[in-house]
């Protein structure tokens, strides 16, 4: 009956994984430190999207909690790294 949704889901999953690969590439070749921090932040977002897509795929709400946790941790870690870039130390 519904053959559109699985195909769309597989398409979205492959898109998000290719996007994560591109982020990894930028993380490796990034010429400056701020590039690497930006790539790492985007990688957090990509993994969060992957968790949401897996939640849709398997129809469970547990993946949603994982996505919320990933978003929270990504925010905190990116803030810490940006502060380190600016000042050279995190806790003054």
């Amino acid at each position: 009956m519904n053959h559109v949704l699985p195909i769309a889901l597989i398409f979205a999953m492959s898109c998000v994984s290719i996007a994560a690969l591109l982020c990894c590439l930028r993380l490796l070749i990034g010429p400056s430190a701020q590039d690497r921090v930006l790539a790492l932040d985007t990688l957090w977002i990509c993994s969060m999207l992957m968790c949401l897509l897996l939640g849709i795929r398997y129809g469970s709400m547990i993946y949603f909690e994982v996505a919320l946790l990933i978003a929270l941790l990504g925010f905190v870690s990116t803030i810490a790294m940006a502060k380190f870039l600016m000042r050279g130390e995190i806790i003054e």
Binding site: F11, S14, A19
Partner: peptide, 29 residues
């Protein structure tokens, strides 16, 4: 319900890929 969901999933995947392509390809920070 399934058609809009599929359309939104395809759009979201495309936007994600576009954004990360921009992160890789643009010349300056």
């Amino acid at each position: 319900a399934s058609l809009p969901t599929a359309a939104l999933l395809v759009l979201g995947g495309g936007f994600t890929l576009t954004g990360c392509l921009g992160l890789l390809r643009l010349p300056h920070f």
